[in-house]
Design a protein around this nucleic acid. Structure first.
Lengths: 240, 240
DNA sequence: CGGTTTGTTGAGATTTTTCAATTCGAGTGG
DNA sequence: CCACTCGAATTGAAAAATCTCAACAAACCG
């Protein structure tokens, strides 16, 4: 978020919103044509490689970003280094805590990502002028709250086996947009260590549970990162 | 929420908002005088005893409520009965998921509570007319999201001892508004079983950790529910 | 008072972590 | 093209944390 590279910027038209609308419209579905054109002027398309940090906990926020492609990992760290992933963001989410001076989480590109970066003042000006836009931001916040609470159930009350199954199920249903297919295949956006930090488990436990799911035929592991799921309903049963 | 008792309704004036403003203004700080008067007409002041269910998961919502006094417990249950408390609401929070047809959690009075109930259509009409009000609701959603993510760290990465200390610290800082006092005393709004469901622990583990904090002199237990904390900073150290 | 619910405590069982040893795959330089 | 190396992932065995089961004590309620 600090080092914005302008090179890839496509200046033809509302870059942000072409993509957004292609995938469920993101922030921009709520804007008028005029507003879109104005917005496109202040946005920058940016690419980040997997692993790059986008925002640090307790650091001032100077811009927001709309996720165009890829997965972003939100996490928090305890003083002694224990880490917890508190959320994942997929396109077309808005990245950045609205109306906060500083971030409350660390954001990192989990996979290669494309972002559409918007300076903080530009978005906030737009928010205060466009009630529909603010409404949309609120709807995202409410959805994220629902997701966080669902995940709290997983963290607090599920066994390690159920946690890993729940994680795979979550990713499967978010990554493969051609939904409802019983059979899917995808690349995990997180390392085993990150999965552990998401589930509140150690790497070893995650690995053991993945191995078990594999030997039970619930999932197939192609290439460590690449997972195939022959029957989503069967995975669902393992989620508790 | 279903069985609204009108008996205690105080019809003089904006019941809701007197109380709200007394304690940090809740929803109503954003409304004009006219709007307040209009709102007061459709609100009902309601009392609920500890343990009463206010809203059931997956049930249609027909009203919202502003919490005037007491604590409300939000929880989710797995098919097999495992339960997780996913949030607590204190005055002056707004209870009810805005813009959702049905609830995604079960809400229950943790202590005796006073509510100011607003029919769903009345609040939503107001929301669509008043941008400042919608803004305020969004700010609450964002704050709840921050809290949920903080709690995910506790659930996923802390030990049982740290979880219990964190819970007591959370309650201590929320219950006693005369904040920053190093020394406090309060009634726990939750039973040991509920604390376990909040922390993802069994009742027995909660009880053992409370006993340990007591024998270490970090807390004092007067009457099972009544806790005194001689030194908040010392408790804080136990939170991890 | 009984009976019931709520909380505490102990001992053994279970799950998960920790520590240690390997294996796998990708990238590098000869 | 093939060792070599490095980080990520897997696997095993022992240790630690937490849960389960069971007994009991304390408060609560008609």
């Amino acid at each position: 978020m600090q080092t914005v590279r302008k090179d890839i910027h496509n200046s033809e038209m509302p870059v942000l919103c072409q993509s957004c609308e292609a995938r469920h419209q993101g922030i921009c579905g709520a804007l008028s044509g005029d507003e879109l054109v104005a917005l496109a002027k202040s946005t920058r398309r940016v690419h980040k490689d997997a692993g790059e940090e986008l925002m640090a906990d307790a650091m001032p926020i100077d811009s927001y970003a709309s996720v165009l492609r890829g997965v972003i990992k939100l996490s928090k760290v305890l003083e002694d280094g224990r880490q917890q992933v508190v959320g994942l963001q997929f396109a077309p989410d808005l990245l950045g805590r609205p109306f906060a001076a500083e971030s409350r989480v660390t954001a990192e590109a989990a996979s290669d990502v494309d972002l559409c970066v918007i300076p903080k003042p530009a978005l906030e000006a737009l928010l205060s002028r466009s009630a529909p836009l603010e409404h949309r931001v609120m709807m995202q916040a409410l959805r994220e709250l629902d997701e966080a609470r669902d995940w709290m159930v997983t963290l607090g009350r599920k066994t390690a086996a159920e946690k890993v199954a729940s994680f795979l199920y979550l990713i499967a249903t978010h990554m493969d947009p051609c939904d409802e297919a019983l059979e899917t295949s995808f690349d995990l956006p997180l390392s085993r260590a990150d999965i552990g930090d998401f589930l509140g488990l150690t790497v070893e436990t995650v690995s053991r549970q993945i191995s078990r799911l594999k030997s039970d035929g619930v999932i197939g592991i192609v290439n460590f990162r690449q997972v195939s799921i022959p029957d989503l309903a069967r995975l669902r049963l393992r989620c508790g």
